[in-house]
Each structure stands twice: as C-alpha cells, then as structure tokens.
Design a protein around this nucleic acid. Sequence first.
DNA 1: GAGCTTTCGCTACGAGTCGTAGCGTAATGG
DNA 2: CCATTACGCTACGACTCGTAGCGAAAGCTC
Lengths: 208, 208
Amino acid sequence: MQSRSPAPRATGRPRSAAADTAILAATRAALVELGWSKLTLGDVATRAGVAKTTLYRRWAGKNELVVDAVAELFDELELPDCGTLAADIEGVVLQFAAILARPEAQNGLMAVVAESCRDDALRERIRASIVDRQKRLVLQGRERAQARGELPPEVDPAEAARTVDLIFDMVAGAVVHRTLVSAEPADAQWVHDFTRILLTGLTGPAAE
Amino acid sequence: MQSRSPAPRATGRPRSAAADTAILAATRAALVELGWSKLTLGDVATRAGVAKTTLYRRWAGKNELVVDAVAELFDELELPDCGTLAADIEGVVLQFAAILARPEAQNGLMAVVAESCRDDALRERIRASIVDRQKRLVLQGRERAQARGELPPEVDPAEAARTVDLIFDMVAGAVVHRTLVSAEPADAQWVHDFTRILLTGLTGPAAE
DNA sequence: GAGCTTTCGCTACGAGTCGTAGCGTAATGG
DNA sequence: CCATTACGCTACGACTCGTAGCGAAAGCTC
C-alpha cells in the first residue's frame, strides 16, 4: 500500500517505519488545520519531525501522499451482520458517513478525486487504496442477502457485476453528495430514509 | 450571478461585458488543457486577452472564478416531459451525465467542492449557482409525477422537503460518483438500470 | 570490528506563482 | 470639459516548489 518500494533491498539502512506513520498522521493533521490548497509538503515535514527531502524520497507528490493518508481512515470499515439486509445497509452506511464527517476525509478525498481526472496513475491508486475495499462490502452484503432469500440470485454474472457497480455508485455517491455538497450530516434518520428508498424505490409500498 | 457588483454605479467607465464572457470561456479552456491545479490566473488572463489585474478586480480568487465558469455549463439543464416518471428521470439524468462528461466540468467541479469544505462563502456560491438550480428539477418532476398519479401526494411538507433533498443527493451523487470516481460513462444502459433501482428498489418486482 | 550500502537531516538554490501597487490611458455620464 | 471608474502594463516582495549536495547515522555481511 505504501508509496513505492519496488525491491526492499536487504542491504543498507532501512527506511524508518515510524517516519511513515508520523508523516501520514501529520498529513491528516495538516488537512484538518489548513485544508487541501494551503497544505504544503514543507509544513507536513515539519509537523512529522522529518526533513522535507525525506518526504520527496517516499512520495512522488502531494496527491499520492494525501491518498495514502486518507486511505488509512477507511481501514476500519466493515459490514455488520444485523440479520436483515436493511439493517446491514444502514449499519455500513452509518460507518461510511462517520468517516466522511471527519474534516481530514472531506478536505482530502474530493481534492484527490479532482486531481485524478487528469492523472490516471493517481486514479488507479485511489481505486486500489480506497474504492475497491468498499466495493467488497457491497458484494459481501449482496451475497449475504441472497443467502437469506432477501434478494433473488443472479444468473448472468455480467449483469451481477453491473449491478454491484451500480449499487456502489448509488450508495457511496449519495453519502458523499449529502455530506460534501449539501453539507448536511448523514445522520440516522437520513440513512434510514435512504435505505428505504434504495430497497423499495420511490414508488414502493406506500411512502411512510 | 456575477462576481460582485454591489452597486453598479451610474458614473465612470462601465465594465466590459465582453471581458466577462471571454474570461469565463478562457477559464473553461484552461481547465480542459491544464486541469485545476496547474491552472493559473495569469494564464487565464492571457487566454482571455485581458490584464491579470482585471481578473483580480472582478473575482476574489481562483475558486470563485471557476465556480462561475462551471456554473454556465449547467444553464442548459431542463426537465423533459416524456409522459412517464421513469422516462423523465432518464432524460434529465442523461443530460446531467452529458454535462459531467465534459472535462471542464470534471476538472472544475470537484475541485471547488473540495475547497468549499473550508470556505462557507464558496459553498454558498456553489449552492446558489449550481446546486439549487438542479434541485428545482427534482421538485418539478415530483410534482408532475404526483399529478399523473405515479407518486402518492405528500401530506407533511417537512417530510416532503426531506424527500426532495434525499432524492437529489441520490441522483446527483450517483451520477457524479459513476463519472468521476468510478470513471466510467453514465451511458443509456447505466441510466436505465439506475432509474429502475431508484423507482422500484433493490427488492423490487423481480430483478431484470 | 571493518567496510559497504542506503537513508536521513540539513542547507541552499533557481524557477515559478501569488496578489498588489503604481501609473498612464480609455470610456462613460453630468 | 471634467469627474469617475475601468483598463493595460510593469514591477515587486513573499512564498512554495522540487532538487542537489553534503556529512552523519543505521543497518547488513564478512
């Protein structure tokens, strides 16, 4: 997951693992205090107690550094097993919303996504570090619901993959948009309403 | 909608309206070629054929300028009347997707949203220039569907407002996430699948 | 312990951008 | 004709960037 260690040579002085931890933590702290645009690598280096050159030896630039710093926030994400699909969805969406409520996630995430529009390598890094890990949750929840009989089993694997991608975009997109664009909290009530629409649709069994 | 003309004084030389048009067009062109981070106001001024100081006299900074430049892209958005709620949604989502497919929208939109996390005035500007205009479409489509009898009428106005916000976050969030994070086109098939889920839900009448 | 290899901290540097000030000129209205 | 404002241009200090160079430190192998 780290920046670039193509061949961890057995000889020579090893890289300080403590420095990595300190740098990523300092990056998140700087994101909270300064935001994306005013965050400078020199400042991060000072906060972390390392030299600026050490930063440039490990990361190609600001984008890659922030991706790694933000990615760690999503490590805690996991799918709860509450017994029903609706409860599982509400649980994981609430976790996701809690992470997105943190200022370091807000300030960093959108900025690197914006940068990734013109940097395919960065987009791939985001996908590998952050996105795919969440998509696994959708897959897992879907399988579990199918085992329970709450969802019909998929026959066409290609269509199943399309559906997983679609659901992921709907869930992640809605929470991100609610939190960062509408700038209102994705609280318990919102998550409840969202889950109801997602499961039963707008025309579903009698609204409310 | 313009940057700041608190009191358009009757005396003195008036501001060139052509310069505004040229500057915003140049901003979009620069967004396409350079992206957000490498876009400089000096470069925009050169492209627009105006002096850099003129830019600073009209806009407070890069953020505000790009918001205005991107906002113009959404002027063409309108709700079609196709006869059914599903067709109306598909139509407007396809329009929205077409705008988001343009590189100037991708490069600019996410960046200003990211900046707005630490700048409330900027967030309000985005809301007024871009977001609220789209929310009107949700309201309009909902009323039309209720008149057709496709959706039950809302009794509680507070809950109705909550629902409109929720639907807006779901629609806009999904399209944005699909386009900018998943980096895959929101084409006709995707929009069709999305609309089906949105209307009938995951557990809806027999997937497929 | 000797020697090799790589990392680390530090300093300094040219390049580039930022946002502003100052000045003379151009375009309106009274 | 004159006051007022916008415009184009130049120049400026301040800041950040990313890199180069150096000596010292920390590991591994023999």
